[in-house]
Design a protein around this nucleic acid. Structure first.
Length: 168
DNA sequence: AAGACGATCCTG
DNA sequence: AGGATCGTCTTT
């Protein structure tokens, strides 16, 4: 409890990591020094270059670069010119997988998560292992985790049918 | 250089 | 139902 998740937690298949993130505490130390801890309540797994819903399927670019690295880092990107969406990179170098944090307690919706956490471009590539402003801590296991199809990726064909959304 | 679009949210 | 808003990628 109150223990920062170690590298090993993230260095696994995204489909193992994603459901285990449900119930964990996302910790944010704000610029004013205040610290808030939010329970993670909804995530989605994006799994490598084959997953057409995963940005990494577009290839290795300045934007997707961090996903191709080793797990345990932050991947943020701006959507619709308005919201910074938070992702946690998982797996070994080259896996190009990440977990989208869709909801935290009190803040339903990936855009609202980024707004609450005051994310911006500077979080791109941040280490969840050494960062002093964002990380994840262990927590009591949650009783029941539900699954469904991922949201907003109808363009990805068969990949849209994967039950890779996990929530309380 | 210009155009299209998006893992969203808010308003009416 | 439609607009906001801009970085990234694609096309010229």
């Amino acid at each position: 409890m109150n223990t920062r998740l170690p590298p090993e937690f993230f260095l696994r298949d995204v489909l193992d990591v994603a459901p285990e993130l449900i119930g964990k505490k996302l910790v944010r130390c704000f610029p004013d020094g205040s610290i808030e801890k939010y329970m993670i309540t909804e995530v989605e797994a994006y799994r490598g270059i084959e997953d057409l819903a995963c940005h990494a399927s577009k290839g290795r670019t300045p934007r997707t670069e961090v996903m191709f690295g080793e797990g345990g880092t932050v991947y943020v990107y701006l959507i619709y010119g308005q919201y910074w969406l938070l992702n946690l990179v998982t797996g070994s170098e080259g896996d190009a997988s990440a977990v989208l944090i869709r909801c935290i307690e009190g803040f339903p919706g990936p855009g609202r998560v980024g707004r609450e956490l005051q994310l911006d471009k500077s979080f791109y590539g941040e280490s969840l292992i050494t960062s002093q402003r964002i990380w994840v801590e262990d927590a009591e296991p949650v009783p029941e985790i539900r699954t469904s199809k991922r949201i907003g990726i109808e363009y990805s064909g068969e990949w849209a049918d994967k039950l890779w959304r996990f929530y309380l």
